[in-house]
Amino acid sequence: MEAFISLTSKFISLPLENIDTDQIIPARFLTQTHREGLGAGLFYDWRYEAGGTLRTDHILNQDHRDAHILVAGANFGCGSSREHAVWALQSYGFRVVMSPSIGDIFKSNALKNGLLALEIDPFFYQEICRHPEASLTVDLEQQSIALSSGATSSFVLEPFARLCLLQGVDQLGFLLGHETAIANFEGRQR
């Protein structure tokens, strides 16, 4: 997992509530058995007409090389547990998603893959939406966000997930390091 310390970037905003993981990556893209390349299916039904023609005016179809942050309305990532949603966002180029609230399973999946999923102050969210041309700086060490127009905010990330992200380590190694405690538990349970 790639470490995350801080990032300054343009952002793309999708100011809609309840964006579910079926929208992020439709189910028909879920038959692949590897993680890579899912960016092509990201928000597919929003980015393409029913016949498969690209909607050139859709914000996600603009040049996005400088935009590594997605800003979305409340309850982002609700619905299906598909981790493919996280892989698709990463494959497209996002390293951060922020929203006033994020679905529990999506949030957990994101943080385990190094995609920083941040729940931000709703007023700051509105402030961001008012400045679509600005850039954002996200500092995970300080747990702060700054909008290039001047406004700033802070966030709280679950401390363990934050440490894993700062160090770029995943949680599996940590769990496996508790072999004795797990074996003891199993001994007690029996």
Partner: peptide, 18 residues
């Protein structure tokens, strides 16, 4: 409760979750 694929791997390997 539902989990993502990373956690599926954690459970397979450790029978535990954080």
């Amino acid at each position: 409760f539902g989990i993502g694929t990373s956690e599926v791997g954690y459970v397979l390997a450790s029978q535990c979750l954080l």
